[in-house]
């Protein structure tokens, strides 16, 4: 036989929790109206980076494709020529595709990339209605051109050879004069 307390007080006490909670701060996130930033190192969509002059960092070495545990990356390298240069050095990635329906955003490709060409952004709103749209091509992945960048192909603007780029000894654009300084 339940006691009087159990019969009458406990059910009301339960509402006490409800009542108390009404004065607490709401935990619900108002996504998508208010987007809470992710952790800075959140693994989101990939990005193919550029050098400050707009040349691509990707050299088409395919190490990302080899590191990928899900076989989500396809790369086809090609040789730079004097007339059409896309990256410093000998090779560039001519075809670059990531299949986001396979990619598990684990970041092994980022670790494998020898030139830091491939990094991850914090963008995560990737859902789409078809499989094809979720295979991102090079133009979808490339970082946008920032001020001072130039759409490749163009010659190496920041150094004489790829070694200057990789060692970081390239000339930096002086903002005021626009002249190249060492």
């Amino acid at each position: 036989m339940p006691t009087l307390k159990e019969q009458f007080w406990d059910p009301v006490a339960g509402f006490g929790v409800t009542f108390r909670t009404m004065f607490r701060k709401v935990v619900t996130e108002q996504y998508p109206k208010e987007k809470k930033p992710t952790a800075p190192r959140f693994h989101g969509r990939h990005q193919l980076n550029r050098w400050p002059d707009g040349l691509e960092k990707c050299i088409g070495c395919e190490l990302c494709a080899w590191a990928c545990p899900a076989d989500a990356i396809y790369v086809e390298g090609a040789s730079n020529t004097e007339d059409a240069r896309f990256s410093p050095g000998e090779r560039y990635g001519r075809v670059y595709q990531i299949n986001y329906l396979r990619c598990i955003l684990c970041g092994l490709c980022i670790e494998a990339c020898p030139t830091r060409a491939l990094t991850m952004t914090n963008e995560y709103e990737l859902a789409d209605a078809t499989r094809e749209d979720l295979i991102y091509e090079k133009q979808d992945l490339l970082a946008p051109l920032l001020p001072g960048m130039e759409q490749p192909p163009h010659p190496m603007r920041l150094g004489n050879d790829d070694g200057d780029y990789y060692r970081g000894t390239f000339r930096r654009q002086d903002d005021e004069t626009g002249e190249a300084t060492q």
Binding site: G60, C61, E62, W66, G77, S79, E90, R91
Partner: peptide, 9 residues
């Protein structure tokens, strides 16, 4: 052949 493939490809 330079940079065209890797042996395990």
């Amino acid at each position: 052949y330079r940079f065209r493939a890797r042996p395990f490809d």
